[in-house]
Measured scan of single mutants.
Amino acid sequence: MQNSHSGVNQLGGVFVNGRPLPDSTRQKIVELAHSGARPCDISRILQVSNGCVSKILGRYYETGSIRPRAIGGSKPRVATPEVVSKIAQYKRECPSIFAWEIRDRLLSEGVCTNDNIPSVSSINRVLRNLASEKQQMGADGMYDKLRMLNGQTGSWGTRPGWYPGTSVPGQPTQDGCQQQEGGGENTNSISSNGEDSDEAQMRLQLKRKLQRNRTSFTQEQIEALEKEFERTHYPDVFARERLAAKIDLPEARIQVWFSNRRAKWRREEKLRNQRRQASNTPSHIPISSSFSTSVYQPIPQPTTPVSSFTSGSMLGRTDTALTNTYSALPPMPSFTMANNLPMQPPVPSQTSSYSCMLPTSPSVNGRSYDTYTPPHMQTHMNSQPMGTSGTTSTGLISPGVSVPVQVPGSEPDMSQYWPRLQ
């Protein structure tokens, strides 16, 4: 039975679970980093996980050691009161100082060594604690504590007292930064006198190289990059290397530039699409467009005044059976039934097929058609009795279509119309 579990990581490298990497692998990681390889490249070359490479390099940059820390136990506290007071002093002298600059000053002034120097995250935590204590304490208590930490007896009751030896409130920041720059020169002199001055200088240079600022491109470089971006948004590694040799930039910087440029292009394309949609959409909808001609068919113009009344309900007709019959029939052209047409008796099958359309009241044959006459024609229609054979009435077949029909004066039988409509 094995005491430890061995495995293979996602890159194909072998590791022992819970145990640190061998010293030979750690040394190779540092050597590759000094030669300029990126952590992701080191991870692929040595088949070590990216997190492990970053952790080893980060500890090497901070402490200069590649040895693993002790497994188990607690780390001794490195942010001692003396170190905290120095950090507060540096922050007062130059409020814009960075944590890694404070760390360098602690090393250069001999406050800490490589073994007990606090990390950048520890210094940031100390600065946050100082800021929170400043908010919790009152103004007087804060000034007393700062005077105690600074070891001075001057008056701290006013704002300019934060910067000793100065009279203009805006000047101390520059003086403090100048003092810090002077301390940086002392850093070089002190570290050069040490035993491991060369190694420390190499480590600091490598650290500065990794902690780079934003790349500033010249106009020629920007023009070359934009020209390549117009050709393709995704250049391959050969195109990037050719462009890197042409404009004297690292291939990694060119790759990052193209990634950022593609993101910018997507944002601009989104804005262009929004403007295009806004320009195509009308600002207001016309009133006429809300009524579609496919839904509402136009009603033909009436030929006679009587045809303006298109349904039985508008003429005072309360018989719903006839109203439904007229509205359900398709529109037909106007025609006239003459008196000489043969009077065919209704076929029983045809009569039964339209039995649902006729009223059940037996008085329908005896009703006159003056009910369908509009009010303004009552006088004219009353002067001509319906009993004469020459009287013409208008029957409504569908809305908007008038059918003048000659009705025999002897017997106005409704059943004569249905064979004609089939």
Rank of each mutant, 00 (worst) to 15 (best):
N116M: 11
P68I: 03
G12S: 03
K134P: 10
S85G: 11
V53W: 05
Y90M: 09
R103C: 06
R67G: 07
R19Y: 06
K91F: 00
T63W: 00
R69N: 10
L57G: 04
C52L: 01
G58S: 15
S122C: 05
G51V: 00
I97C: 15
S132I: 11
V30R: 07
I71V: 14
L46K: 01
L130R: 14
N124P: 00
R103P: 00
D41E: 13
E82L: 14
S35Y: 11
N17S: 15
A88L: 09
S122N: 04
Y60L: 01
Q10E: 06
A139W: 13
Q135N: 14
K91A: 05
A37V: 12
C52I: 00
R92T: 15
C40W: 01
L149I: 09
R147Y: 09
M137P: 12
R128F: 05
D115S: 14
L46G: 02
K134L: 09
P20D: 00
R44K: 09
T80L: 07
L107G: 15
S24A: 13
T25H: 07
P76D: 02
L107V: 10
G73C: 02
A79T: 15
F15T: 02
E109N: 13
N116A: 11
G64H: 05
E133T: 10
C94F: 10
P118A: 08
Y90H: 14
S85C: 09
A139E: 12
Q136T: 14
R19F: 04
S108R: 12
G36T: 02
A37T: 11
L146R: 14
V53C: 01
L107R: 15
G138A: 12
I66Q: 02
N17V: 15
R77C: 01
M148I: 07
G12K: 03
M137T: 11
L106T: 00
P68W: 00
F98T: 06
V8H: 06
S119K: 04
Q47S: 09
S96Y: 12
K28I: 06
C40I: 11
M142I: 11
P39R: 10
K134R: 10
L57I: 08
Y61D: 06
S132V: 09
Y60E: 07
S108F: 10
S65T: 08
Q27E: 10
N150S: 12
P20Q: 02
S132Y: 11
R69H: 11
G7F: 07
I117T: 15
G13N: 01
S54G: 05
I42Q: 03
I66W: 15
L107S: 13
R103K: 13
L11A: 06
D115W: 08
Q47F: 06
L149F: 11
V48Q: 00
I56L: 08
N114Y: 09
L46E: 03
K91G: 15
D104W: 14
R19N: 04
N114L: 10
N50A: 15
I97G: 14
Q10H: 07
I97Y: 15
L149E: 15
R128L: 04
G141N: 08
V48D: 01
L106W: 03
V16L: 13
A131M: 10
A99F: 01
D140S: 12
G58L: 10
A70K: 15
E109R: 13
C112Y: 03
Q136I: 11
Q2I: 12
R44W: 07
A131Q: 10
M148G: 12
R69V: 03
V111L: 09
T113R: 14
F98G: 05
N9P: 05
V8N: 05
S54V: 06
N3T: 11
A99M: 03
V78H: 04
H5F: 08
D140A: 13
N3W: 08
D104C: 10
A37K: 15
R103A: 08
N3M: 11
I45H: 14
Q27R: 14
K86V: 08
A131P: 08
S43Y: 02
R59Y: 00
N114D: 09
L32H: 05
Q10Y: 02
N124M: 07
N124I: 00
N17D: 02
G51K: 04
L21M: 03
V78G: 00
Y60D: 00
C112I: 07
K86Y: 12
H5A: 13
G72N: 04
F15N: 02
A139P: 09
N150M: 07
G13L: 01
I87A: 05
G18C: 02
E109T: 12
